[in-house]
């Protein structure tokens, strides 16, 4: 018994060897917030939303393996305040204009803002200058909304085997790039059916001619229940 459990917020959680803290928590029905994690893809540990305290030390739950006897803090006021600050920084770093975004109501960044009661992005807006790439017949990229989670990079490489996306630049100059002779999406190997198109947690990769038709206001995923209600396999926003 003691060999196969660790604790989350003082509750014993079973795990199988090799499972990460995030996976074990999901299996036990406990929500750990995340933005750059996807069950089908290799963990990245980039967004830091899933930061938890493992025996008092900050670790990303999506990369840290569960181990017997670990004491993990997940839902504490300090960690939640840090998560809200992370969401605020992601908001001011891009141009996240929710009222004009097709993904609104189904966007994980927005849902995390709701989850941690972000009332304002708080920091000074960067208002970066980014272009839209609408060169592809079926898909467009709204770089203004990209949060550099690298889900599309990983999905295109590991599931679609196309390597359409990559991240170029470092630090605050880091940005999503498209692997094609012109750098345009229309000249890449991307198809609308690619997994890379569907994994975007925000409104950065958008399928054309859908618009706001997915669901009316009030019927959208996060209108009905908070993102923290999404645990275990039934993850509506990730399963789509």
């Amino acid at each position: 018994m003691a060999e196969t459990t660790f604790t989350i917020d003082e509750m014993p959680i079973p795990f199988t060897p090799g499972q990460t803290i995030l996976e074990a928590a999901k299996a036990a029905g406990i929500y750990i917030p995340h933005l750059c994690y996807h069950p089908e893809l290799k963990a990245h540990g980039g967004c830091k939303m899933c930061t938890v305290l493992v025996n008092g030390r900050p670790q990303t739950a999506c990369t840290q393996k569960a181990a017997a006897g670990q004491e993990v803090d997940v839902d504490t006021p300090e960690l939640n305040a840090m998560r809200r600050t992370l969401v605020q920084m992601l908001f001011i770093e891009g141009n996240h204009f929710c009222p004009g975004c097709e993904k609104s109501g189904a966007c994980q960044l927005q849902a995390l803002g709701y989850e941690y009661e972000m009332l304002t992005p708080h920091f000074v807006e960067l208002y970066p200058e980014r272009k839209v790439d609408a060169s592809h017949p079926d898909v467009l990229i709204e770089f203004n909304r990209c949060v550099l989670c690298e889900l599309c990079v990983r999905a295109s490489r590991d599931i679609d085997h196309k390597e359409v996306f990559g991240i170029a630049g470092r630090g605050r100059d880091a940005h999503l790039v498209v692997n094609s002779p012109t750098g345009k999406l229309g000249d890449s190997a991307l198809a609308v059916t690619d997994r890379a198109v569907q994994v975007c947690p925000v409104g950065a990769i958008i399928v054309k001619r859908v618009g706001f038709a997915a669901a009316p206001i009030g019927e959208r995923i996060y209108d009905k229940s908070p993102i923290s209600a999404e645990v275990d396999v039934n993850e509506s926003s990730e399963a789509r």
């Binding site: 908001f91 001011i92 204009f97 929710c98 009222p99 004009g100 009332l119 304002t120 807006e125």
Partner: peptide
Amino acid sequence: GACAINGGLPALRNK
């Protein structure tokens, strides 16, 4: 509201 908080729609001219 959105405009008072992050500039909102009018802030689309910021670029």
